[in-house]
Write a protein that binds this DNA or RNA. Structure first.
Length: 292
DNA sequence: CTCCAGGAAAGTC
DNA sequence: GACTTTCATGGA
């Protein structure tokens, strides 16, 4: 199928969206991009204003890539200074993707203290061992595991997937989700603060992981995950919004206390507005790729 | 070989 | 409450 995009009204860039670090499961074969989403293989490519896709219907594509978000409006709201302006110009058309909550949650628990290539490998290993195999265009893909498969996984099996110390967190979180202790549908309907509080009960989920799950899979676009890159961005470009002693403390410390995390995150929420999560994603991608 | 990774939890003061 | 250490392993 094919979708004609008006890049002025509905800007979208497939490459920026897939490569900005929010997703860990897309592969490139020839000039096509393949992703496994909810047990379906989605095959896509983009040339200028034409988005070609196979495997799913139009509604699915529009929902997954949040084409309903008024991106020009959002960008104009978050575009508060020359730095973010550079980022939104450099990666015009980057959109936040509507991920499946379970996959998002487990992925970001695994992302703790790992680089992106290693994270991708962990998620692939988990899917290969516990997920359903799907063949598409003579390539093998694996759906992300069902919750009960993860909940009854043995610790050694999870460790075999290169999870290291994260194996225990994944196992225990999967058990808690499986027995209904946390319900994603409820969290989607809850407000940001309430939903975050619930997520923080899960082992392996701290402030940053919770905010990633809220932003990427639970409809909380005000979530602003503060990782090492956002810390660097603040230290380098937004120092005049904090007192010198606080910045000095940030530079000295390696990890953030909850209080310091919230100070940075809520600053960004006030500064960039209700779609601060979009600002985070543009800044993250911009800094990880070039600036420093 | 060394360094560090989209941090979180447990321990210490 | 604030600061420090530990955690397991792959990628660069």
């Amino acid at each position: 199928m094919e979708l004609k995009l008006n890049q002025y009204l509905t800007p979208f860039d497939l490459e920026h969206t897939l490569q900005c670090g929010q997703l860990f499961r897309w592969e490139k074969h020839s000039d096509w991009r393949y992703g496994v989403v909810e047990k379906q293989v989605l095959k896509m490519r983009q040339t200028k204003d034409t988005l070609e896709f196979e495997g799913v219907n139009l509604d699915f594509v529009e929902n997954y890539f949040r084409l309903g978000d008024n991106l020009p409006q959002i960008v104009s709201e978050i575009n508060r200074d020359p730095l973010i302006n550079q980022a939104v110009k450099a990666f015009s058309g980057l959109r936040i993707v509507r991920q499946a909550p379970l996959e998002c949650l487990i992925s970001y628990i695994c992302a703790t203290y790992k680089n992106i290539p290693a994270i991708k490998n962990m998620i692939h290993e988990l899917s290969k061992r516990f997920g359903e195999e799907i063949t598409f265009d003579n390539h093998e893909f694996y759906a992300f595991p069902e919750i009960d498969a993860l909940a009854k996984a043995a610790l050694y099996e999870l460790r075999d997937c290169k999870l290291g110390f994260r194996a225990k967190f994944v196992q225990e979180t999967a058990k808690m989700v499986n027995c209904g202790k946390v319900d994603f549908k409820t969290l989607k309907e809850a407000d940001y603060e309430t939903a975050k509080e619930e997520l923080l009960q899960l082992p392996g989920v701290g402030n940053k992981v919770a905010d990633c799950v809220l932003l990427f899979s639970l409809e909380k676009l005000e979530a602003f995950p503060v990782d090492v890159w956002m810390k660097r961005v603040v230290e380098k470009h937004y120092t005049n919004y904090f007192d010198a002693s606080f910045i000095k403390k940030l530079l000295k410390k390696q990890s953030l206390s909850t209080r310091d995390y919230n100070r940075l995150s809520s600053f960004a929420r006030n500064y960039f507005g209700k779609n601060a999560g979009y600002a985070q994603e543009y800044l993250f991608h911009f800094f990880r790729n070039k600036a420093l």
